Simulated scan of single mutants.
Amino acid sequence: KDTPLVNAVFWAAKRGNLPLLQLLLNSGRVDADCRDSVGTTALMVASHGGHYDCVKELIMQGADINYQRETGSSALFFSSQHGYHDVVKLLFEFGASTEFQTKDGGTALTVACQYGHSKVVDLLLRNGANVHDQLNDGATPLFLAAQGGHVTVIRHLLSCGAKVNQPREDGTTPLWIAAQMGHSQVVKVLLSRGADRDAVRQDGSTALFKAAMKGHNDVIEELLKFSPSLDILQNGSTALHAAVMAGNVQTVRLLLGAGADPTLPDQ
Protein backbone atom coordinates (compact mmCIF):
# COMPACT_ATOMS: atom_id res chain seq x y z
CA LYS A 1 0.00 0.00 0.00
CA ASP A 2 2.64 2.54 1.04
CA THR A 3 4.95 2.31 -1.97
CA PRO A 4 6.85 5.31 -3.37
CA LEU A 5 4.40 5.62 -6.27
CA VAL A 6 1.39 5.51 -3.95
CA ASN A 7 2.98 8.14 -1.74
CA ALA A 8 3.57 10.28 -4.81
CA VAL A 9 -0.09 9.97 -5.81
CA PHE A 10 -1.15 11.04 -2.33
CA TRP A 11 1.29 13.95 -2.39
CA ALA A 12 -0.07 15.13 -5.76
CA ALA A 13 -3.68 14.80 -4.56
CA LYS A 14 -2.93 16.67 -1.35
CA ARG A 15 -1.16 19.53 -3.12
CA GLY A 16 -3.61 19.71 -6.02
CA ASN A 17 -0.85 18.97 -8.52
CA LEU A 18 -2.90 17.79 -11.49
CA PRO A 19 -0.07 17.27 -14.05
CA LEU A 20 1.85 15.04 -11.63
CA LEU A 21 -1.29 13.15 -10.68
CA GLN A 22 -2.11 12.51 -14.35
CA LEU A 23 1.44 11.37 -15.07
CA LEU A 24 1.38 8.87 -12.22
CA LEU A 25 -2.07 7.50 -13.00
CA ASN A 26 -1.39 7.23 -16.73
CA SER A 27 1.81 5.28 -16.08
CA GLY A 28 -0.28 2.18 -15.43
CA ARG A 29 1.85 1.41 -12.37
CA VAL A 30 -0.51 2.73 -9.72
CA ASP A 31 -4.26 2.35 -9.26
CA ALA A 32 -6.64 5.28 -8.89
CA ASP A 33 -8.03 3.53 -5.81
CA CYS A 34 -4.68 3.12 -4.07
CA ARG A 35 -5.09 3.60 -0.33
CA ASP A 36 -3.09 3.85 2.86
CA SER A 37 -3.08 1.52 5.86
CA VAL A 38 -6.36 2.92 7.25
CA GLY A 39 -8.18 2.96 3.93
CA THR A 40 -7.70 6.60 2.97
CA THR A 41 -7.82 6.99 -0.80
CA ALA A 42 -6.30 9.64 -3.04
CA LEU A 43 -9.84 10.78 -3.86
CA MET A 44 -10.48 11.45 -0.18
CA VAL A 45 -7.24 13.41 0.07
CA ALA A 46 -8.09 15.54 -2.96
CA SER A 47 -11.65 16.07 -1.67
CA HIS A 48 -10.32 17.08 1.75
CA GLY A 49 -8.20 19.74 0.08
CA GLY A 50 -10.93 20.95 -2.26
CA HIS A 51 -8.86 20.23 -5.37
CA TYR A 52 -11.66 20.02 -7.94
CA ASP A 53 -9.52 19.11 -10.96
CA CYS A 54 -7.71 16.33 -9.10
CA VAL A 55 -11.01 14.97 -7.79
CA LYS A 56 -12.39 14.90 -11.33
CA GLU A 57 -9.26 13.23 -12.71
CA LEU A 58 -9.39 10.48 -10.08
CA ILE A 59 -13.07 9.89 -10.79
CA MET A 60 -12.42 9.67 -14.54
CA GLN A 61 -9.59 7.22 -13.84
CA GLY A 62 -12.06 4.96 -12.01
CA ALA A 63 -11.73 5.91 -8.34
CA ASP A 64 -14.52 4.55 -6.13
CA ILE A 65 -16.53 7.61 -5.06
CA ASN A 66 -18.28 5.89 -2.18
CA TYR A 67 -15.36 4.00 -0.69
CA GLN A 68 -15.10 4.43 3.11
CA ARG A 69 -11.92 4.45 5.16
CA GLU A 70 -11.81 2.57 8.48
CA THR A 71 -13.46 5.45 10.34
CA GLY A 72 -16.34 5.43 7.86
CA SER A 73 -15.44 8.74 6.25
CA SER A 74 -15.81 9.13 2.48
CA ALA A 75 -14.80 11.69 -0.11
CA LEU A 76 -18.24 13.32 0.24
CA PHE A 77 -17.81 13.53 4.01
CA PHE A 78 -14.46 15.34 3.72
CA SER A 79 -15.58 17.80 1.05
CA SER A 80 -18.75 18.55 3.03
CA GLN A 81 -16.75 19.03 6.23
CA HIS A 82 -14.68 21.77 4.60
CA GLY A 83 -17.49 23.39 2.63
CA TYR A 84 -16.23 22.67 -0.88
CA HIS A 85 -19.53 23.16 -2.70
CA ASP A 86 -18.10 22.58 -6.18
CA VAL A 87 -16.45 19.31 -5.15
CA VAL A 88 -19.62 18.10 -3.42
CA LYS A 89 -21.61 18.90 -6.56
CA LEU A 90 -19.11 17.02 -8.72
CA LEU A 91 -19.25 13.96 -6.48
CA PHE A 92 -23.04 13.93 -6.73
CA GLU A 93 -22.82 14.11 -10.52
CA PHE A 94 -20.93 10.83 -10.44
CA GLY A 95 -23.13 9.02 -7.92
CA ALA A 96 -21.98 9.92 -4.42
CA SER A 97 -24.31 8.67 -1.67
CA THR A 98 -25.41 10.63 1.39
CA GLU A 99 -26.21 7.49 3.37
CA PHE A 100 -22.77 6.45 4.60
CA GLN A 101 -21.92 6.99 8.27
CA THR A 102 -18.73 7.27 10.27
CA LYS A 103 -18.19 5.14 13.37
CA ASP A 104 -19.74 7.84 15.56
CA GLY A 105 -22.79 8.07 13.31
CA GLY A 106 -21.65 11.15 11.44
CA THR A 107 -22.76 11.85 7.88
CA ALA A 108 -21.89 14.43 5.26
CA LEU A 109 -24.94 16.40 6.42
CA THR A 110 -24.11 16.35 10.13
CA VAL A 111 -20.55 17.55 9.54
CA ALA A 112 -21.63 20.27 7.09
CA CYS A 113 -24.13 21.52 9.67
CA GLN A 114 -21.54 21.38 12.44
CA TYR A 115 -19.28 23.74 10.52
CA GLY A 116 -22.03 25.95 9.14
CA HIS A 117 -21.57 25.35 5.42
CA SER A 118 -25.02 26.50 4.33
CA LYS A 119 -24.56 26.06 0.55
CA VAL A 120 -23.31 22.52 1.05
CA VAL A 121 -26.16 21.75 3.46
CA ASP A 122 -28.66 22.89 0.82
CA LEU A 123 -26.98 20.74 -1.83
CA LEU A 124 -26.89 17.68 0.42
CA LEU A 125 -30.57 17.99 1.30
CA ARG A 126 -31.50 18.37 -2.37
CA ASN A 127 -29.60 15.16 -3.09
CA GLY A 128 -31.27 12.94 -0.54
CA ALA A 129 -29.57 13.68 2.78
CA ASN A 130 -31.78 12.90 5.76
CA VAL A 131 -32.56 15.95 7.91
CA HIS A 132 -33.18 13.52 10.80
CA ASP A 133 -29.68 11.97 10.78
CA GLN A 134 -28.27 11.38 14.27
CA LEU A 135 -24.85 10.78 15.74
CA ASN A 136 -24.52 7.82 18.09
CA ASP A 137 -25.25 10.13 21.03
CA GLY A 138 -28.46 11.36 19.41
CA ALA A 139 -27.20 14.73 18.18
CA THR A 140 -29.06 15.82 15.04
CA PRO A 141 -27.94 18.19 12.26
CA LEU A 142 -30.07 20.88 13.92
CA PHE A 143 -28.39 20.27 17.28
CA LEU A 144 -24.92 20.56 15.75
CA ALA A 145 -25.84 23.74 13.89
CA ALA A 146 -27.29 25.22 17.09
CA GLN A 147 -24.12 24.34 18.97
CA GLY A 148 -22.06 26.18 16.38
CA GLY A 149 -24.37 29.19 16.16
CA HIS A 150 -25.13 28.74 12.45
CA VAL A 151 -28.41 30.61 12.01
CA THR A 152 -28.72 30.26 8.22
CA VAL A 153 -28.25 26.50 8.41
CA ILE A 154 -30.78 26.27 11.25
CA ARG A 155 -33.45 28.12 9.30
CA HIS A 156 -32.93 25.82 6.33
CA LEU A 157 -33.07 22.66 8.42
CA LEU A 158 -36.28 23.79 10.11
CA SER A 159 -37.84 24.59 6.74
CA CYS A 160 -37.00 21.03 5.68
CA GLY A 161 -38.75 19.46 8.66
CA ALA A 162 -36.10 19.22 11.36
CA LYS A 163 -37.61 18.65 14.81
CA VAL A 164 -36.92 21.72 16.89
CA ASN A 165 -37.15 19.89 20.23
CA GLN A 166 -35.33 16.66 19.31
CA PRO A 167 -32.90 16.09 22.21
CA ARG A 168 -29.60 14.33 22.40
CA GLU A 169 -29.64 11.12 24.47
CA ASP A 170 -28.78 13.07 27.64
CA GLY A 171 -31.83 15.30 27.16
CA THR A 172 -29.91 18.26 25.75
CA THR A 173 -32.06 20.12 23.22
CA PRO A 174 -30.88 22.47 20.45
CA LEU A 175 -32.21 25.38 22.53
CA TRP A 176 -30.26 24.31 25.62
CA ILE A 177 -26.97 23.96 23.75
CA ALA A 178 -27.46 27.30 21.99
CA ALA A 179 -28.16 28.95 25.36
CA GLN A 180 -25.05 27.42 26.88
CA MET A 181 -22.91 28.67 24.00
CA GLY A 182 -24.42 32.16 24.13
CA HIS A 183 -25.89 32.11 20.63
CA SER A 184 -28.74 34.56 21.17
CA GLN A 185 -29.83 34.74 17.52
CA VAL A 186 -30.07 30.96 17.39
CA VAL A 187 -32.13 31.00 20.58
CA LYS A 188 -34.41 33.62 19.02
CA VAL A 189 -34.99 31.53 15.89
CA LEU A 190 -35.57 28.29 17.81
CA LEU A 191 -38.05 29.91 20.18
CA SER A 192 -39.95 31.45 17.27
CA ARG A 193 -40.24 27.97 15.74
CA GLY A 194 -41.68 26.37 18.87
CA ALA A 195 -38.67 25.32 20.95
CA ASP A 196 -39.67 24.26 24.47
CA ARG A 197 -38.27 27.05 26.66
CA ASP A 198 -38.64 24.90 29.79
CA ALA A 199 -37.23 21.60 28.50
CA VAL A 200 -35.24 19.95 31.29
CA ARG A 201 -31.96 18.16 30.68
CA GLN A 202 -31.14 14.94 32.53
CA ASP A 203 -29.13 16.91 35.07
CA GLY A 204 -32.21 19.03 35.83
CA SER A 205 -31.07 22.21 34.12
CA THR A 206 -32.98 24.34 31.63
CA ALA A 207 -31.76 26.71 28.93
CA LEU A 208 -32.47 29.63 31.27
CA PHE A 209 -30.49 28.06 34.11
CA LYS A 210 -27.47 27.45 31.90
CA ALA A 211 -27.58 30.93 30.37
CA ALA A 212 -27.79 32.44 33.86
CA MET A 213 -24.82 30.42 35.05
CA LYS A 214 -22.78 31.52 32.04
CA GLY A 215 -23.93 35.14 32.17
CA HIS A 216 -25.31 35.13 28.63
CA ASN A 217 -27.63 38.09 29.11
CA ASP A 218 -28.60 38.41 25.43
CA VAL A 219 -29.83 34.82 25.56
CA ILE A 220 -31.73 35.45 28.78
CA GLU A 221 -33.46 38.46 27.26
CA GLU A 222 -34.67 36.32 24.35
CA LEU A 223 -35.87 33.59 26.71
CA LEU A 224 -37.72 36.09 28.89
CA LYS A 225 -39.76 37.19 25.87
CA PHE A 226 -41.31 33.71 25.94
CA SER A 227 -41.95 33.68 29.71
CA PRO A 228 -39.88 30.69 30.79
CA SER A 229 -40.43 29.24 34.23
CA LEU A 230 -38.14 31.02 36.69
CA ASP A 231 -38.59 28.43 39.42
CA ILE A 232 -37.41 25.14 37.86
CA LEU A 233 -34.76 23.65 40.12
CA GLN A 234 -31.43 22.03 39.46
CA ASN A 235 -30.06 20.45 42.61
CA GLY A 236 -32.15 22.82 44.69
CA SER A 237 -31.15 26.00 42.87
CA THR A 238 -32.98 28.19 40.38
CA ALA A 239 -31.53 30.22 37.51
CA LEU A 240 -31.36 33.25 39.83
CA HIS A 241 -29.30 31.39 42.39
CA ALA A 242 -26.99 30.11 39.65
CA ALA A 243 -26.42 33.70 38.52
CA VAL A 244 -25.73 34.78 42.11
CA MET A 245 -23.24 31.98 42.68
CA ALA A 246 -21.48 32.84 39.41
CA GLY A 247 -21.32 36.53 40.33
CA ASN A 248 -23.24 37.64 37.23
CA VAL A 249 -24.65 40.91 38.56
CA GLN A 250 -26.45 42.03 35.40
CA THR A 251 -28.00 38.59 35.04
CA VAL A 252 -29.29 38.81 38.60
CA ARG A 253 -30.87 42.19 37.78
CA LEU A 254 -32.53 40.74 34.68
CA LEU A 255 -34.01 37.79 36.55
CA LEU A 256 -35.18 39.83 39.51
CA GLY A 257 -36.81 42.26 37.10
CA ALA A 258 -38.63 39.33 35.51
CA GLY A 259 -40.02 38.30 38.89
CA ALA A 260 -37.62 35.61 40.03
CA ASP A 261 -38.04 34.65 43.68
CA PRO A 262 -34.82 35.56 45.56
CA THR A 263 -35.46 33.10 48.38
CA LEU A 264 -34.15 29.57 48.22
CA PRO A 265 -36.89 26.93 48.16
CA ASP A 266 -37.29 24.48 51.01
CA GLN A 267 -34.98 21.50 50.63
Rank of each mutant, 00 (worst) to 15 (best):
G194V: 11
D203H: 03
P4I: 12
L255E: 01
G62F: 03
G95W: 09
L223Q: 10
L90R: 00
D266N: 13
A112T: 05
V151H: 06
G72M: 06
Y115V: 10
A146F: 06
N66H: 15
Q134G: 11
Y52M: 06
D231P: 02
Q134R: 12
V121G: 04
T110S: 03
S192Y: 05
D64E: 12
T251M: 04
Y52G: 01
L264Y: 05
Q267G: 01
A178S: 13
L254A: 01
H48L: 06
L233W: 07
T110F: 12
P228W: 07
D266Y: 05
G161F: 15
G62S: 11
I59E: 00
W176F: 13
G16K: 07
P228H: 09
P265M: 10
H82C: 12
P167W: 05
A195C: 13
V151E: 02
H132G: 02
A145H: 12
L125D: 03
G204F: 05
K103C: 10
L142A: 11
L190N: 14
E70P: 08
A12N: 05
L224R: 11
C34G: 04
S192T: 15
S205K: 03
G161S: 03
L223D: 07
L158Q: 09
A260F: 10
S159A: 09
T152Q: 14
V9N: 06
K210D: 11
Q166W: 03
F92Y: 10
L124C: 06
L76P: 09
S192D: 10
H82L: 15
D218P: 11
T107M: 03
A8C: 13
G215H: 05
A145M: 15
A63M: 07
E99N: 15
V252K: 00
S184D: 06
A108R: 02
A32E: 09
N217D: 14
Y84F: 12
G138A: 07
T152N: 08
N130W: 02
S192I: 10
S80M: 00
S47A: 12
M213I: 04
E169L: 02
A145D: 13
V6E: 15
D36P: 06
A246T: 05
N66T: 08
S159I: 04
N248L: 11
M44I: 01
K89D: 14
H82R: 15
S192G: 06
G116E: 09
F226L: 14
G62I: 00
V200E: 05
L58Q: 03
E93F: 08
G28D: 12
T98M: 05
L256K: 02
P141R: 09
G50Q: 04
G182S: 00
G128F: 03
A146P: 02
G105N: 01
M181R: 11
Q185H: 12
